[in-house]
Design a protein around this nucleic acid. Structure first.
Length: 490
RNA sequence: GGUCCUGUAGCCGAGUGGCUAGGCAAAGCUCUGCAAAAGCUUCUACAGCGGUUCGAAUCCGCUCGGGACCUCCA
């Protein structure tokens, strides 16, 4: 806890020493998914990155309130503030109630997160569950004079806001520059300024999801939900707000404006943004049509995939790059991670059978220190992993009898691997003979014993048949110099 | 057009003034009835051209690539 932790803050474009508002506690808000379709792999990367951050804070002993929302209303197809929201559109398409869409994809999202072994957030609030809070906040913004009502809709007045606060501070841009980049307002547009965005949108007769408000029936704009829910659960100013880099320019910029307009203070101390997953150098996204679904990746059922990859191999692949760098997706890279991950896990298993020696040939403290230094430097997981491979190499060397480890060393290595591989990185062993099924374990022990007997009589035909037959029911036998081991192939 | 980011060995990726990650692949070796694993060793790169410096992949300038945002997106 007394360690100096550096965090790259988008606001200042530099690494800053993390100082929580309340000693020993962290308030963190991360923009969650919009649940109108399946989350793809790029979305998953963001949540895996923040899972790493969440886990590291926990490991350091912080009490963390991690809020990650579910956007289940009010997210329009375009930014024109017209038309139906994404849920209603999808609902019509699939002939379902909007809330059936929400339920379906929320469950799917949770399933994916479970596969990736991410910890659930402390609170997972939904936009539809916080309509009152959003309406209250909009009322507040109107009272403060930064929003105006037009035909049942409410818009945020960006140009007025910018006279008091720097609107484009998060992307380091001035209002004039932003204005140049936007499209002309159509004649029928209700907005006063080109950059103005909707806080509340009037319902049309065909709108499915709508709520009563002081301005009539309607539904909230996209940005207001995060401001309303983050301030409700974390306070008017909280420690960390995260999300994908693509949210920086619009969504997060508007969040700051909304909160600042209400409370006259900055809502967030540290803004953290994760970078994009790319395919052949181009960002993975729904609109580009190059999005992989996690399920396709696990099964290998996709034209661009040579085979399936396990969730942990995919997660390890992501953790081998820094969260602020783009990461390019390819079969080759994924296979490299799959093997590297297996190597790391194998070394951890090897640790169990090491015999302690009376002398020590290593300096465990140095490796441990390097691991913490890596994570304290803006959550540098690639460097952490490099150090863990260093530890793996020591373990292998000890197993070969080339390095001496005391009992203390071995226990220290176990603790190190357990802390960083399982707790901080959130990885888990996938294929192993470690099963809770006592009967299966007993039977396998017997079979291997019998096979050992057969082999010692050099009846290789019989022993190979046993191996082949077992592999047909997905139990793999490998003969090592220390005897045979078995694994279940999933 | 505007605002930024980026170019690192066959591939993926850290590093941001001197100590030159790591993984995969490849080659050689060890172990080995076979199969499969596993282990060890080797391989030294920073787009190009200038500049600053005792010293640059790292700082500055230019050129050439790649990408993001400014429109829904994690």
């Amino acid at each position: 806890m007394q360690q100096k932790l550096l965090i790259y803050n988008t606001l200042t474009r530099s690494k800053e020493t993390f100082k929580p508002i309340h000693e020993g506690m962290v308030g963190m808000y991360v923009c969650g998914p919009t649940v109108y379709s399946d989350v793809h792999l790029g979305n998953s990367r963001t949540f895996i990155s923040f899972d790493l951050i969440f886990r590291y804070f926990l490991h350091l002993g912080y009490k963390v309130r991690y809020v990650r929302n579910i956007t289940d209303a009010g997210h329009l197809e375009g930014d024109r503030d017209e038309g139906d929201d994404k849920f209603a559109k999808k609902a019509k398409l699939e002939q379902l109630e909007p809330m059936e869409i929400v339920q379906k994809y929320t469950l799917g999202f949770h399933d994916v997160m479970r596969h990736f072994n991410t910890l659930p957030p402390s609170i997972e609030p939904t936009a539809t569950g916080h309509i009152c809070e959003q309406i209250e906040m909009i009322k507040n913004i109107i009272e403060k004079g930064f929003a105006y009502v037009k035909n049942g809709s409410v818009y945020f007045d960006v140009e007025k806001y910018n006279k008091e606060y720097p609107y484009g501070q998060l992307t380091n841009r001035k209002l004039d520059e932003l204005l140049e980049g936007t499209r002309e307002l159509g004649g029928q547009d209700e907005k006063k300024g080109r950059l103005d965005f909707a806080l509340w949108i009037v319902a049309k007769p065909e709108t499915l999801m709508k709520w009563p408000s002081p301005w009539g029936l309607g539904f909230p704009g996209w940005h207001i939900e995060c401001s309303a829910m983050s301030s409700k659960y974390l306070g008017e100013t909280f420690d960390i707000h995260g999300g994908g880099m693509d949210l920086q320019a619009t969504h997060h910029t508007n969040e700051i404006a909304q909160s600042q307009a209400c409370n006259h203070k900055a809502p967030v101390n540290y803004w953290m943004h994760t970078n994009m997953l790319t395919v052949n150098g181009v960002r993975m996204s729904k609109s580009a049509g190059n999005g992989f679904l996690p399920g396709e990746l696990f099964s290998g059922n996709h034209p661009l995939l040579e085979k399936g990859y396990s969730p942990m191999a995919v997660k390890f692949f992501m953790l081998q790059s820094h969260y602020r760098s783009t990461l390019d997706f390819s079969n080759e890279a994924l296979q490299a991670s799959e093997k590297g991950f297996a190597k790391l896990i194998t070394s951890i298993n090897t640790l169990e059978k090491l015999k302690p020696s009376s002398t020590s040939g290593i300096s465990l403290n140095e490796i441990e220190k390097a691991c913490y230094e890596a994570m304290n430097d803006d959550f540098n997981s690639p460097i952490l992993i490099a150090n863990l491979f260093e530890a793996a190499s020591i373990i292998n060397s000890a197993n070969d009898g080339k390095t001496a480890l005391t009992e203390n060393d071995i226990n220290g290595l176990k603790k190190l691997m357990n802390n960083f591989v399982f707790d901080v990185l959130g990885l888990k062993s996938e294929n192993s003979s470690i099963t809770t099924d006592k009967a299966l374990n007993g039977v396998m022990e017997m079979i291997l014993d019998i096979r050992k007997d057969i082999k010692s009589k050099k009846d290789f035909a019989a022993s190979d048949k046993l191996r082949d037959d077992l592999s047909k029911i997905n139990i793999l036998i490998k003969d090592t110099k220390d005897g045979a081991i078995w694994t279940i192939q999933e």
